[in-house]
């Protein structure tokens, strides 16, 4: 290929764009900061990062006239990847400091962690640190979060003890191998069930349609949607660019989808 695929990183004044750019380069992609419509529309893929408050972020996107181009990107079927707040912005609305309308690309809302309870203490909000991502349960009747009474944590501990190999300690019952594997063909392809990713968030998305959830995680007994996928949209509550080698794999998957040869990034 003559040139690496161009990934527009939406620059609206929030988020560590530098580390997202580094991860793109690592995967053989050409990152470019984009703060206007033309830059967004000519890119091969768009990444919407974000740190901070939902309301401020939407205000910035409106002020820069970027909400239209973001919706156009999704409508055109070009990859649009949300990270952290960037996932939450894709939703219909957020309950952070009042109600704010989001981009509305995915039906659902954004809510705050309500008293996450660890085995021996109340957990902190925001959640800051590494947490496992799992394939969503197939019989996902209840969308969004539900209290699991820490069963996830206990299940992990009882599956051969905490020192047992990772593969054995992951709740693989929920994983659907083969053709029905929800991660096959997604940006999470090739990741180990129960892999750790780096999170920093007080809020999480509750998509209306359970099928939108690409991964789920549990914090203090609260199961939440940690990645979503809908058409060419894919978004992560965690930071793949800060999640070590496994996080970089997500960028490599994006690069592969955009035509960068595997194993031999440009």
């Amino acid at each position: 290929m003559d040139r690496p695929p161009v990934v527009a990183i939406v620059d609206y004044g929030l988020g560590n764009l530098f580390s997202v750019g580094q991860a793109c380069e690592h995967a053989g992609l050409q990152p470019t900061l984009a703060s206007d419509a033309p830059a967004l529309l000519k890119a091969d893929a768009v990444i919407l990062p974000g740190v901070g408050a939902f309301g401020d972020a939407m205000e910035s996107l409106h002020r820069l006239d970027l909400t239209g181009p973001l919706k156009d990107t999704a409508a055109a079927g070009r990859p649009l990847i949300g990270i952290c707040l960037g996932l939450q912005l894709l939703m219909s609305e957020s309950h952070e400091f009042g109600r704010h309308a989001g981009l509305g690309l995915i039906a659902g809302s954004v809510v705050r962690f309500d008293k996450p309870q660890g085995p021996d203490r109340m957990l902190k909000v925001p959640e800051v640190g590494w947490n496992r991502i799992h394939r969503p349960p197939m019989a996902a009747g209840a969308p969004g979060a539900r209290a699991t009474e820490r069963t996830g944590h206990q299940a992990e501990l009882s599956a051969g003890g905490p020192g047992a190999p990772r593969a054995a300690s992951a709740p693989s019952d929920d994983a659907q191998p083969g053709a029905s594997d929800p991660w096959a063909g997604s940006l999470l392809e090739g990741l180990t069930e129960g892999e750790y990713m780096y999170f920093v968030h007080s809020f999480y998305a509750k998509p209306d349609a359970p099928g939108v959830a690409l991964s789920v995680s549990t914090y203090g007994g609260i199961e939440f949607c940690s990645a979503v996928r809908q058409g060419s949209l894919c978004a992560f509550q965690f930071h793949p660019e800060r999640s070590g080698a496994q996080g970089l794999r997500i960028y490599s998957n994006l690069a592969a989808r955009l035509g960068v040869p595997p194993e031999k990034p440009l």
Binding site: H153, E156, L157, P162, R166, Y196, Q246
Partner: peptide
Amino acid sequence: LLQCGMDCRVDTEQA
């Protein structure tokens, strides 16, 4: 820490 019964992140590649 794992032996102490505490949760701990271990990267699959680092394992």
